[in-house]
Write a protein that binds this DNA or RNA. Structure first.
Lengths: 188, 188
DNA sequence: CGAAAATCATTAGGAGGCTAACAGTCAGCC
DNA sequence: GGCTGACTGTTAGCCTCCTAATGATTTTCG
């Protein structure tokens, strides 16, 4: 659900002009910043529209993906081992709250994609399982999804992709070092 | 309000493994694709948390930004000329529906950041205007906002920023050439 | 002139986020 | 054996986004 606002990015001259008023505005930084958000938003929107055409939302699709690579036969591969099964594990893996995951599972269960089953060993817990319908959906849709990603990234060569990943990695690393924001003081 | 799901990106070996099952999955494309969405989501989340600390949401902030560079004195610069004034113009500029803009203006007006005024020349229309409170807010917050963007992009040198913008531009161009998705057929 | 079409902003209802509070269940520790 | 605390999933209420339908107004054109 992209909502970046600012559909049309300001042109570089506008950034330069704004920088005269705000010395904190670094034009090249702002340009890269806005392009990053804008491009990712467009990519996200395309993915979402494809999912919507298939009748599912990003959030729900994410849950199906998380469940898919654990409901199949266990592969011994340690790197891609058992996935989440309980609502709490799904929430942690997806990066949303448990309340949100409850809502997602509600709609997925209503639409017949998953079922909740009690955990025999701990009555507090539930186990979420994909239905046949969900497996059929994934079998049908995942090729479309992967092909879509390949098409988007088809604009870049292999070395360009590596460069992009490297630059994004630097940004990620920078994000990890930045302190969390404190509440803005009302009075100067 | 980022909700990318997939908090932890799959490792490259997992992509390779998945590619054995799905020939449509191009591992380097998927890697770049996921990193792009993930990084932008993190950047967006940081920005949102700073805005939340200042007591405003991304959507509302976007509206204030759109209104800010038009309510001031008219500069003759054609590149940064008059901004939107009516709810419909704001919705178009922001890339949201008019109904959504109505809701945003509702809360902004409730909180005293904007006022609605009737358009004297067309009684269907309204003019949205920033209040003194909103201008004070922007004066106080924009430096924080710009500094935040600079900090994030501080991870990259000037040439790296140029490279990033260039690669993102290629992706944007590719997006523009891709056809819009058709509804997924239920039957193969 | 007057009816049809277009455009305006809004409302209603749904989805997916969040926080906070809740009842049920398990584990530990006197 | 029975508290206490930690953990489970859920509920309730709020926010922002969407689509679709509505009423009011302007514009267009026969």
């Amino acid at each position: 659900m992209p909502h970046l606002m600012l559909k049309d990015l300001p042109r570089y001259e506008c950034l330069l002009e704004a920088a005269r008023e705000f010395p904190e505005l670094d034009p090249t930084a702002a340009e890269a910043y806005l392009h990053l958000l804008r491009t990712a938003d467009d990519v996200f929107a395309l993915s979402e529209s494809r999912l919507a055409a298939a009748g599912i939302s990003q959030g729900r699709f994410g849950v199906l993906m998380l469940l898919s690579h654990c409901s199949g036969p266990r592969n011994g591969n340690a790197s891609c081992a058992t996935g989440p099964r309980t609502p709490a594990e799904l929430a942690d893996a997806a990066g949303v709250t448990r309340a949100t995951m409850t809502g997602l599972i509600d709609t997925l269960e209503r639409d017949g994609y998953v079922v909740r089953e009690p955990d025999p060993s701990d009555r507090r817990m539930l186990l979420v399982r994909l239905t046949r319908k969900a497996e059929n959906f994934l079998t049908r849709f995942l090729p479309i999804h992967f092909r879509g990603a390949s098409e988007v990234m088809g604009a870049l060569s292999d070395s360009e992709r590596k460069t992009l990943v490297r630059l994004l990695g630097k940004i990620q690393h920078q994000l990890a070092t930045l302190p969390p924001p404190a509440p803005t003081q009302k009075t100067a």
